[in-house]
Design a binder for these strands. Structure first.
Length: 534
DNA sequence: TCGGCTACCACGTTTGAAGTGG
DNA sequence: ACCACTTCAAACGTGGTAGCCG
């Protein structure tokens, strides 16, 4: 179990109110133009970065396992009833204000606008993606909780399920102002044979910082190795093998003869267990595995060589001007398309400001989507330090700070109506394996008044949170260590009023995030065509 | 015809209530 | 009465597979 940490004194001042004040100052003026936005946006953060949400660091649990899957081309089964992800999404969070309340949530956005097929033992583009459906957010059931709570131990999203059922019971509900009608679910709807990128969002939810205000800040963390292709049955036998080897629930498919296992381990370090299914596959397969070229893999992994922080103002107000968050048509694509322009701004930690939009070769394209709140049924699992070590998404990044990016969204229709102008001005920039964003967004009227003109690059900057001091330790393969579960963290709590406002906030924010992602995707689109099988 | 999807299935893990003993 | 521990069965999570479907 992780020791509860206390933050340095300086972080006691990391209050929501202060951060909100910054946002207010930055984007509060309806008449503020792009230049004004960027100036005031970057200023407070550079003056006092210790008080912002961008100090939060997130480490992916079992990073090495994720990498193994990623190198083979991760596949996630999706079923009508919903299927868990494996590896499961677990993170260690640090840098929060222990007393501030946060909401942690995950969304899964399209990584590109392709449909894929598995042909000749490798993934190939098979056409244009299906129109993306409104997305969902999986809100961690402990939300909102204090920073101390989140930092105490691993935060697990393992109960998140993936479904291909577009008519999922909660799939067509809208989020209203009343928490009582909010649909709490733990399924995210995806299309089969499409590539997706999970993202973690951390939203401040302090008592003094009510959702629906324009003061809410959040950050987004993306681990590129968690990208996957959704399937209804496994295509790549290497993925099947990895799942069987590492997922306790799939033990029944492992080889039963211990001596065989030992021999297998001697023969293969990477895939020590030869399952019955694999043996069967190997006998049947007429296409022996073709290892992905190093260059291909590098292309995949080098696509995120920086950490960015974005800080958003409340999206609902921005997107809809005078409309209150509760008035949002939460399931409306049209409303989102008409919601005007969106910006995101990035700032490097060293206060150097770059002007390059983010490259995102094969990642993160997302349509507008709404959010709903997941049931409070996930648990946080306590763990030893060793368990979460080695999971940093940044510890193996190259020393140079990543580039920054600045983008603008126009009215959105998935994959089609983004501002191509902006995309085309986006030079390729490597992204880190793990990057985070905190974004501040201007009010809609202000943005809309800018028309469809791309913003000046000088208005944007990147904040680099790259850390060179991440701890790396060995990660056990099995995460199911019942004795380490902290009972209090598995309690089923009644819905909190926070969730209600969070719904509105996050829902509106989700659109912004989607646009951000889509832009990043477009900026680097085409660099990775195939995901080859090893 | 064929690729994708679904509903089962067997098997193993997880979970939590019930039982037991100190 | 309380707590810690054990037991055990139901619930749940797996990949495999046959068959359906467009």
């Amino acid at each position: 179990m992780l020791q509860e940490k206390s933050l340095p004194e300086g972080e006691d001042g990391f209050t929501t109110a202060q951060t909100a004040g910054h946002v207010e100052a930055a984007a509060g003026s309806p008449a503020m133009g792009v230049a004004g936005l960027s100036n005031s946006l970057s200023s407070p953060q550079s003056q006092d970065p210790e008080q912002t949400i961008e100090n939060i660091k997130v480490y992916l649990h079992e990073k090495e396992l994720w990498k193994k899957f990623h190198e083979a081309g991760t596949e996630m089964i999706i079923t009508k009833a919903g299927r868990r992800m494996f590896p499961s999404y677990k993170v260690k969070v640090t840098g929060m204000n222990p007393k501030t309340k946060y909401i942690l949530l995950i969304d899964i956005v399209p990584a590109d606008d392709h449909r894929y097929k598995f042909c000749d033992n490798k993934w190939m583009v098979a056409g244009k993606a299906e129109p993306a459906m409104p997305g969902r957010l999986y809100v961690h059931p402990d939300s909102p909780a204090t920073g101390a709570h989140w930092m105490r131990q691993l935060v697990s999203f393992q109960k998140l399920k993936l479904t291909n059922n577009h008519l999922d019971p909660f799939g067509h509900k809208t989020i209203t102002h009343d928490i009582s009608v909010h649909q709490h679910h733990h399924k995210i709807i995806l299309n089969s044979m499409h590539k997706y990128q999970p993202r973690l969002h951390i939203v401040k939810a302090d008592e003094n910082n009510a959702f629906g205000s324009k003061n809410t800040a959040f950050c987004t963390h993306v681990f590129s190795e968690t990208a996957f292709i959704s399937v209804t049955s496994y295509q790549n036998h290497k993925i099947t093998q990895l799942k069987i080897e590492n997922n306790p629930f799939a033990k029944g498919f492992r080889g039963s003869d211990d001596s065989d296992l030992r021999v297998a381990r001697l023969q293969s370090k990477e895939y020590p267990v030869i399952s019955k299914s694999i043996m069967r596959q190997r006998l049947v397969s007429s296409h022996p595995g073709q290892l992905t070229s190093k260059s291909d893999l590098n292309a995949l992994h080098s696509s995120h060589q920086g950490l960015q922080h974005y800080q958003y103002e409340n999206g609902a107000h921005m997107q809809f001007g005078a409309a209150d968050a509760q008035d949002l048509p939460l399931n409306s694509f049209t409303a989102q398309r008409d919601s005007g322009l969106f910006y995101h701004c990035l700032k490097r930690r060293d206060d150097h400001y770059f002007r390059s939009p983010p490259p995102y070769d094969q990642q993160m394209l997302s349509p507008p989507y709404r959010n709903e709140v997941a049931p409070r049924d996930a648990c946080m699992y306590s763990t030893s330090g060793a368990e979460i070590a080695g999971v940093s998404g940044v510890d193996d990044l190259p020393p140079p700070p990543p580039p920054l990016s600045c983008n603008m969204w126009t009215s959105v229709s998935p994959y089609t109506s983004y501002s191509v102008q902006t995309m085309e001005t986006v030079p390729y920039q490597p992204f880190p394996t793990h990057f985070t964003t905190t974004t501040m967004m201007p009010r809609l009227p202000t943005i809309a008044s800018q028309g469809s003109q791309p913003p000046s690059e000088s208005h944007f900057s990147v904040y680099n949170q790259l850390s060179q001091s991440q701890v790396r330790e060995r990660v056990p393969t099995s995460s199911f260590q019942r004795e380490r579960v902290h009972p209090s963290l598995c309690e089923r709590k009644p819905p909190s009023p926070h969730i209600n406002t969070a719904n509105e906030f996050l829902y509106s924010q989700s659109f912004s995030l989607s646009r951000e992602s889509s832009l990043q995707y477009h900026s680097g689109m085409g660099t990775v065509e195939n995901w080859t099988d090893g």
